[in-house]
Simulated scan of single mutants.
Amino acid sequence: MRQLNPYLNFPGTCEAAFNFYKAAFRTEFSYFSRMGDTDAIEVPEEDKNLVMHVSISFGDNHLMGSDVPESMRKDFVAGSSNYVCVSTESREEADRLFSELSAGGKVEMPMSDMFWGDYYGSFRDKFGTYWMITYSKEQ
């Protein structure tokens, strides 16, 4: 497998979520478009400002997302059954990302040394996305 790129969907909060992620990861959007930016499909007026596609990049890795239009949200649950796992280069980076991304969310497991040898923590952020932050001394 060459890449694994998590793709997150949101109920109208994608832009706020990705601005939050962009700040925490200290990066910029590599792509950003709104549903109203295309003529390829007919978009209801109330959905034109929703995010059609956004991406932030880290080397060859990408975190991508979009909003789910109102008409498609019947069975949608933000953040359901998905985690984004971030492997860091240092304990300090792990602590910083955990602190910034978990702000306003719900911590499941605080950062701590785990029995398998990693420094690890997990949480649900304020947008409903689940995260695992890990640092392994043996990289």
Rank of each mutant, 00 (worst) to 15 (best):
A17K: 07
F18S: 01
F127M: 10
G59Q: 09
E70K: 14
W116C: 12
D125N: 04
T27N: 03
M64N: 08
Y135G: 09
T129Y: 03
M72T: 03
S55I: 05
S136F: 10
E70T: 14
E46I: 10
E45W: 08
T27F: 07
R26T: 15
N82W: 05
P44Q: 12
Y7Q: 07
K126Q: 12
F29V: 00
R124F: 05
S33V: 00
V77M: 12
P69D: 04
M52D: 06
A40E: 14
V86Q: 06
V77L: 13
P11V: 00
R34T: 08
Y135Q: 06
N5I: 09
Q139H: 13
L8I: 08
Q139W: 08
L101R: 01
A23I: 04
Q3M: 11
P44N: 12
R91C: 08
F98Q: 09
P44F: 08
F127L: 12
S71P: 01
T88I: 00
S112F: 07
P110Q: 09
C14E: 01
E46N: 15
G12T: 07
T13P: 00
M132H: 11
M35G: 02
D118W: 01
W131I: 05
E15H: 10
A103F: 06
S90H: 07
M114I: 06
I41D: 10
S30L: 01
S136I: 11
F25Y: 07
G79H: 03
P44I: 08
S30W: 00
R2A: 14
A40M: 15
A103Y: 05
D37R: 02
S90T: 07
A94Q: 02
V84I: 06
V77F: 10
S90C: 03
S87Q: 14
R2N: 15
L101A: 01
G104P: 03
E108Y: 13
T38A: 06
N49E: 15
V77A: 13
D60S: 11
N9T: 11
M52F: 09
N9H: 10
S122H: 02
E70G: 13
G104Q: 11
R96E: 14
G36V: 01
S112I: 07
F127V: 09
F18H: 02
V43L: 02
H53L: 01
E93Q: 13
M114K: 11
L50Y: 07
K106Y: 05
G12M: 04
T38K: 02
N19I: 00
I56G: 05
S57P: 04
S112Q: 15
V68C: 07
L101H: 01
V107I: 15
A17Q: 07
R91G: 02
I41F: 14
G36A: 05
D113S: 13
V54Q: 03
G59H: 08
A94L: 03
S87F: 13
M111S: 03
A40N: 12
A103G: 03
S102Y: 03
S66E: 02
W131M: 05
N61W: 11
S87N: 15
M114E: 13
R34I: 06
S57G: 09
M132S: 10
K74Y: 10
K137I: 02
P69E: 03
